[in-house]
Computed example of a mutant assay.
Amino acid sequence: MIYAFDTYYYDDYANTVCLAFQDWDSAQETEIFSEKTAITSDYESGAFYKRELPCIVSLLNKINLQPCDVIIVDGYVTLDENGKHGLGGYLYEALDQKFPVVGIAKNGFNSNDPERRMVFRGESKTPLFLTAKGIDVDAVQTEIEGMHGSFRIPTLLKKLDQLTRS
């Protein structure tokens, strides 16, 4: 199973949603998990994970992960060539490195990371930025390119983003 997470912040709470789907090319989710939580940290430039990681971990506690499951986050797993953690890297560590974590970011990050891949989907000239831990990033790149939908953002990730905002 693949579990994709995203969080949207309102004035007084965070809305975290997870879409579970069977295969990389699935057009429909098999289950939706969601949770509203108190915001435990203000936004801190360069430390985004401090705000979002508690939300994801809290929702993950409601999901019975299996050894072959993969987790997707909206953001980066690694940030540079030294392996500096992004949100996904901190999540990978919080899960004791037991589950692969894939980061799919919409915006570029200005650092050199030989493990970062640009993914071009559909007719878009603007890439998604892919990083991962616990899984081969090149193999995942092929999967992301083949995800359902003909636009830059795969169908289920677009739906996930919309659900966090509703």
Score class of each variant (00 low, 15 high):
142 T>D: 14
116 R>S: 01
46 G>A: 09
21 F>Y: 10
137 V>M: 03
89 G>W: 11
88 G>C: 07
143 E>C: 14
94 A>L: 03
140 V>L: 08
148 H>Q: 15
118 M>E: 14
132 A>R: 05
55 C>V: 02
123 E>P: 00
73 V>P: 07
148 H>I: 01
111 S>V: 00
74 D>I: 12
44 E>Q: 13
110 N>T: 10
90 Y>Q: 10
87 L>C: 06
81 E>V: 05
66 Q>R: 14
126 T>D: 07
111 S>F: 13
153 I>W: 10
146 G>S: 15
125 K>E: 13
15 N>L: 09
127 P>A: 06
47 A>C: 04
86 G>F: 05
14 A>E: 08
44 E>A: 12
102 V>C: 08
64 N>W: 01
126 T>E: 11
51 R>V: 01
46 G>N: 02
101 V>M: 04
96 D>F: 02
132 A>E: 13
92 Y>I: 04
137 V>E: 04
115 E>C: 02
146 G>A: 15
91 L>W: 08
122 G>D: 03
63 I>A: 01
94 A>G: 00
106 K>G: 01
65 L>K: 08
21 F>C: 05
98 K>M: 06
93 E>I: 01
98 K>H: 02
150 S>F: 14
124 S>T: 11
27 A>P: 02
14 A>F: 07
121 R>N: 10
104 I>G: 03
114 P>V: 06
25 D>V: 01
31 E>L: 07
18 C>H: 02
47 A>Y: 10
110 N>R: 14
94 A>T: 13
101 V>P: 02
87 L>M: 12
41 S>R: 11
100 P>F: 03
122 G>M: 12
69 D>S: 07
